[in-house]
Amino acid sequence: MLPKKEQTQVEYSRRVLRVQEYIAHHLAEKLSPVQLSKVANLSPHHFHRVFRGVTGESILEYVRRLKLERAARRLRVTVTDVAAQTRWRKDIKSVRVQLSGDAWTEETTTGTVIDFQVRHQQPNTQFEIQFISRQGFSGTWVGIFVASPSGTMVEFSETIYIQSPILRIISRIFSFPDRLIDTYLMELKAAVEKS
């Protein structure tokens, strides 16, 4: 039989584990410390001390971290699942993914065909994609996943090269290439908020 102090530590760990399992199954719901203390069968004040002692973080920090991690996973999956993008992108007519998985061709609803190639990728952190349009422009997109207090953000930077001087002038007047990334970002935001 364990000494009383060790028995208490084992019991506290068991109760915290029960709360962690409850949180995992109810993460989409609003979770209050009082509600979670009831799951642990402890007073709210005592539960706060026990939870921090076992996990090293407060219950609010723990729930916030799990929600941010879940949001980050959703965002990464939505961005990196190229074949599924036709379900949420209104500007795409079709996507043909190469067998390697790191290159694909998109045809927009306006008939523009664009070839994409992943040039660099650090899973869950950063990606760089090169694109070449058969209509005379090319460039790169760099996306960096950044955790923030309000959720996971993706910082995009875009570099566009337009070969034809006439197309450069027309694109500055009508901002055609800019609409590509702007449309993508608006639809990405809507898709992640739905999931």
Rank of each mutant, 00 (worst) to 15 (best):
T159P: 00
R172D: 00
V113G: 03
S43H: 02
S148Q: 13
G136W: 13
P149E: 04
E11K: 09
Q35W: 07
L36R: 01
E187A: 01
E29R: 07
G139L: 15
Q9G: 04
S164Y: 13
Y184A: 14
P165Q: 02
Y12I: 02
G143S: 15
T140E: 14
K189I: 00
V146M: 11
M186T: 05
V118M: 15
W88T: 01
G56F: 00
Q135I: 09
F137E: 07
Q130E: 14
L68N: 09
I162N: 00
P165G: 07
F47D: 07
K38D: 03
A147W: 03
H46E: 06
T183Q: 15
E106G: 05
S150R: 12
Q163Y: 13
Y62G: 11
H46L: 06
R87A: 12
G53L: 00
L66W: 04
R179V: 12
P33T: 01
Y184V: 13
L167M: 10
W141H: 15
P33E: 05
A84P: 01
I59T: 11
I59Q: 10
T55K: 13
G151T: 07
E21F: 12
P123W: 08
H26V: 03
V63H: 11
D115E: 12
T110K: 08
V34L: 08
W141C: 03
R74G: 12
A72V: 05
K5Q: 04
L99Y: 10
V63T: 09
T55P: 10
Y161C: 10
G56R: 02
K30A: 06
K93D: 06
D91H: 00
G101K: 12
V154L: 02
E187H: 01
Q35H: 10
K67C: 07
T110M: 05
V16F: 13
Q126I: 05
I169Q: 11
A190D: 05
E155C: 08
A103D: 14
S138T: 09
A71V: 03
A84C: 03
Y184F: 15
R65S: 13
K189V: 00
R89Q: 09
Q130A: 06
T55H: 11
E193K: 11
R49K: 04
I162W: 01
F156A: 03
K38W: 04
I173W: 05
R134V: 05
R96D: 08
T140K: 03
V192S: 02
S171T: 07
A72W: 01
V192W: 02
K189A: 00
I173S: 00
V82C: 01
A147V: 10
S175V: 11
G53C: 01
E128P: 00
F116L: 05
I132A: 12
E128D: 06
Y62L: 11
I160E: 07
I144E: 15
V50K: 01
R179P: 01
